[in-house]
Simulated scan of single mutants.
Amino acid sequence: MSGMRKIIHIDMDAFYASIEQRDDPALRGRPLAVGYPGERGVVAAASYEARAFGVRSALSSRAALARCPQLVFVPARFDVYEAISLQIRRILLDYTDRVEPLSLDEAYLDVTENRPGIPFATRIAREIKRRILKETHLTASAGVSVNKFLAKIASDYRKPDGLFVVLPHQAETFVEGLKIERFWGVGRVTAAEMHRLGIHTGADLKKYEEHELVRLFGKIGSTYYRNARALDDREVEPDRVRKSVGAENTFAADIDDGDELRARLRDAAVEAWDHAGRIGFVGRTVTVKAKYADFERITRSRTLPRPVRDFAALWEIACGLLDAVDVSQKKIRLLGLVLSNREPPDRSTSSQLEFDFGEN
């Protein structure tokens, strides 16, 4: 394989929920959700005890309680989560300057060259896990491999408190055996479309040529093609500042039905809002983007004087923007939503963000 780098992906285990259980012994061992109960509440994070009942982030509070009646809700404390995230970041920077944060609870490291001069990335990953546990009393999982795609999948392989390594000679076989849901950029809707095409594993995906995947799924099809071959040439970007958060879906069949388009847009909106909540992203501009069957692209945007603070507001704006997309002459093959125009973190208001997805 080309690009023999040494990449580590560090992912904290149930970060928000674990902090709450750490700080309140009465919550340890109990199914816990970070968020707000009630008709319009939503789960921002769930402990492993809650996940055993099927409770997960982005699930409505009502649905979460139906799955786990003994679920305990605690409000989010983003100022605390941010402070601990910075503490962990300082640990990572002791090993390399090449640290790329993805959110408050995960980051990539390129340790091909590293400060301590340690020749083995696996040893560095073990040291980082040990230090995080000692200094924060929280556990982290780590994935180690030759690129970001493989390292991120590996970090999730033996959670919680896991360490998994994908060696260069194992990479292609490892990817061939992966369920398609584990691939970067394959959400629930895309996975369902792939299943309809008979694509269930990396080996199935590998049977398709790049131009076929691009035709079926848009530009991201090129990424699927490379990932199916265990390839990923993205660099670890230590200075990257995320300017937007979004999600999109390319449809297996073109759509012009308004109700179906709205349902597909809602899937993208939920995914984008969930991601924004996990990384503490707050933005003022909402954009709906669409690609017609003839590949013409259009966008419709609205910028607010203040940041979007709850999902109900985001969804209201998104629906208005979708109404401005003309489907009378051409069908739609791709629909997405982007939140941008980022506001700097404001600790006086961050804990008041409402993870509200409305009623299910």
Rank of each mutant, 00 (worst) to 15 (best):
E193D: 09
D274W: 06
V325G: 04
D105N: 08
S60Q: 04
E135N: 09
D259V: 01
E260Y: 05
H169M: 09
F78W: 13
E181C: 03
L59I: 13
H211P: 00
K291W: 02
R264K: 15
D204Y: 06
T190V: 09
G143H: 05
L92D: 06
R62H: 09
T287I: 13
I91W: 00
R229T: 00
S103P: 06
D161G: 07
V282C: 12
V80S: 09
G29L: 13
L353S: 11
L65E: 15
I255L: 15
D257G: 14
D97E: 14
Q21G: 08
V245N: 00
T122D: 12
L339H: 08
R22T: 11
P168Q: 07
R67A: 11
S2E: 07
R300C: 04
E49A: 04
T299E: 11
A107H: 03
Q329H: 12
D79E: 12
S348T: 12
P344R: 09
R306F: 13
L178I: 06
S47V: 00
D239G: 10
L353F: 14
R342K: 14
G320I: 02
I128L: 01
G202R: 01
D274V: 07
Y224N: 00
A171E: 14
K219A: 12
A290W: 02
E354L: 15
R56T: 13
G187M: 01
M194A: 10
A293R: 05
I91N: 11
D233G: 01
Y95P: 03
T287P: 07
L93N: 08
R40S: 06
T136K: 08
S328E: 14
E39Y: 05
Y95R: 05
E39A: 13
S301Y: 01
A324D: 13
A45M: 08
V236H: 06
D156L: 03
P75Q: 09
G38E: 11
V338S: 06
I180Q: 03
I180T: 06
V74L: 08
A272T: 12
L178G: 00
M1C: 04
P305S: 14
G221N: 01
A247T: 13
A203F: 09
S2R: 10
G198W: 09
Q352T: 15
P116D: 03
P75A: 05
K219F: 01
G320P: 01
T96F: 05
D13S: 07
A83G: 05
T250V: 12
I118H: 04
D105M: 11
F120N: 12
R284A: 12
F149H: 08
W273V: 00
D97L: 04
E82W: 10
I10H: 04
L321R: 02
A44D: 00
V111L: 01
T285R: 15
Y16P: 07
E176S: 03
A45K: 07
D13R: 12
